[in-house]
Write a protein that binds this DNA or RNA. Structure first.
Lengths: 206, 206
DNA sequence: CATTATTCTGAGCAATGACTCAGCTCTTCG
DNA sequence: CGAAGAGCTGAGTCATTGCTCAGAATAATG
């Protein structure tokens, strides 16, 4: 009975340890393959090959290619939120220190999977569901930073919401560029300049 | 698939007006199709269809799909450089005014093709040559801004090259986001904040 | 060990997409 | 006009990719 239901949910639930391992191997391989080839050229066959699993097995745990990316995205987001909340909330101090923590956080968060955001943007026009997931995450993060700014006495900007949005995006994309490119400018220096820029902005000097 | 050396140069040089028009139609169509479907799903057949030209004609002017994007990218960047040089060089004045001009410029420049950067990122892993082309032009732009900064007396940063790179990228990506999203924050406000951030950074206040 | 449930395999199918080519139409120019 | 070359056409080729399925291999159970 060929059912028409297609979602991002897994097709089969693993019941043996062996199966769980296979699932993980597939996800790990997918992360590498997507990072290397992009989404379109990161074929399911390549993923299966890298995971040393047959394509048949792959399709026992994921109903389609999108579902693999979706799972990757969700995991990435969850992990990011966790470490962020963990570190920033409990670090008072100078404004510059706070900003630096923010930047460091972005760096750490993308170190393990530096290409994921690019991949998700690539796949976005193909899957509205995926797009929504990403957007939801973004809003949460901005809100979190907004609260952080609200609590710091040295922050002097016109509107906290706008400021939060601006710096979250700026820090995120610059970090991405930093990690993706093997650049002439050393990482530490660029990071320092980024911190300076954001800090001066938030402090509102004239 | 990307094994042998592939060129981005046009295959045939148009000698009649008719041919030149065809070429333009193809490029315009490509811009729309890529923006709507992304690079991978933006097929050459779709482009030809939209341009109301046969695929055969398309391949008379472009040796392959990458070349179309490359041409689009080069034009985009060149146009940016031109208007930039035109407007900025002859506008002395406060640092803030200069930065504002820079931002306005980016906004104008992306109004007609807000998705191009995303598309280029998507296509990048597929073609090293394309990546190089973009990078080369990007460097030119950074160099231009660097010179601009060098000439302004109020600019006080550690390293002009790093600063130029940082602000070019920051202004560019923020503009992109601004234009792509229908956002809650109005354009003018966001623009103002962006100008403030960059200005304060360049002025180097403490 | 036999039986059943779970997991895994990979050749192959259907669809799609980049690109070609043989021949047509249109422009130019003597 | 008419020949030659520039420009255009689109059915078709070849390669690739997402995904299926019939059955083999492995593990759990009686």
């Amino acid at each position: 009975m060929p059912s028409a239901e297609r979602r991002l949910q897994p097709r089969r639930k693993p019941r043996q340890v062996r199966a769980e391992l296979t699932r993980e191997r597939i996800l790990t391989a997918a992360a590498h393959v997507f990072a290397e080839y992009g989404y379109a050229a990161g074929t399911t066959n390549r993923i299966a090959e890298r995971a040393r699993v047959s394509i048949g097995s792959l399709y026992q745990y994921f109903p389609n290619k999108d579902a693999i990316l979706a799972e990757l995205a969700v995991r990435h987001i969850d992990r990011g939120m966790w470490t962020q909340a963990d570190r920033l909330d409990l670090s008072p101090g100078s404004l510059e220190a706070m900003v630096r923590a923010l930047v460091r956080d972005a760096v750490d968060n993308h170190r393990d999977d530096p290409q994921l955001l690019r991949i998700m943007m690539e796949a976005a026009p193909l899957s509205q569901e995926l797009l929504d997931t990403i957007d939801r995450h973004g809003r949460k993060r901005v809100a979190q930073v907004r609260d952080l700014l609200a609590r710091h006495p040295d922050v002097r900007v016109r509107d906290l919401g706008t400021a939060a949005e601006l710096i979250v995006f700026t820090v995120e994309t610059n970090t991405h560029k930093l990690m993706a490119d093997p650049r002439a400018v050393p990482v530490e220096i660029f990071e320092g300049e980024l911190v300076d820029m954001v800090t001066r902005y938030l402090r509102g000097d004239r």
